[in-house]
Computed example of a mutant assay.
Amino acid sequence: MFLDLSKLFGKPKKSKDFAKERLKLVLIHDRANVSPQFLEMVKGEIIKVISNYMDVDEDALDIKMTRTKAEEGDGVVPALVANIPIRKVKNSGK
């Protein structure tokens, strides 16, 4: 689930802007060779691991593929970007 703050602040996006954004995401997924199902599997695994240490808001969790500049060379590589809202940290063993 993605919270679009442009609806609260600033002018709302037009349908063409949403379509353009979706197309970008589809192209990124294709170039990274991952399906939406694979991304959901990764999301589930991340939730499972992080939940051992923190209480997270799964409904507000946002994981997506994007592109970023490679550390070496001039290329662009896929990147997994995760926004994980944390409700509280569980007993940290202190």
Results as ranks from 00 to 15, higher is better:
A32R: 03
F9P: 07
Q37C: 04
D59I: 06
K13P: 14
S6A: 09
K88C: 07
I46R: 01
L25S: 15
D4I: 04
R67W: 13
T66E: 11
L80E: 01
K7V: 13
A79E: 12
K7A: 10
P36E: 07
K48P: 03
V89Q: 03
L8A: 14
K14W: 05
K43H: 04
D17W: 09
V77Q: 15
K88Y: 14
K88N: 04
G73C: 08
R31N: 10
V76D: 02
H29Q: 15
I50G: 00
A79F: 08
D4P: 03
K48W: 06
K43P: 04
L8P: 03
M1K: 10
V77W: 00
I28A: 11
V81F: 13
D74V: 05
D59R: 05
D57I: 00
G10Y: 02
Y53W: 06
V34I: 15
F9V: 11
V77N: 02
G10N: 12
V81Q: 03
D55F: 03
E72V: 15
K94G: 11
S51W: 06
A82S: 04
K20S: 07
M1S: 11
E72L: 13
S35F: 02
V81L: 12
A19V: 08
G93A: 12
N91I: 00
M1C: 01
I63H: 01
F9R: 11
K88Q: 15
E21C: 01
K16L: 13
K11T: 03
R67L: 12
V81M: 10
L27D: 12
G93V: 06
E58W: 00
K13E: 03
K94I: 13
L39S: 10
K20P: 07
F2R: 12
P85L: 00
L5M: 13
H29I: 02
P85R: 00
L25P: 05
S92I: 15
E58S: 14
E45M: 01
D17M: 14
M1Q: 06
S92Q: 15
A60W: 03
T68C: 13
V77T: 15
L27H: 15
S35T: 14
A82M: 10
S92L: 14
K14L: 14
K13S: 07
Y53R: 05
V26H: 08
M54E: 09
E40H: 11
G75F: 09
V42P: 00
V76S: 11
V89S: 04
V77G: 02
F18T: 07
V26D: 06
A19C: 06
K90D: 01
N33G: 10
A70N: 09
I86S: 03
K7S: 12
K88P: 08
N33I: 05
K43I: 05
F18W: 14
I28M: 12
L25Y: 12
S51C: 05
I86M: 10
I63K: 06
I86T: 08
N83T: 15
K69W: 10
D57V: 00
G75H: 08
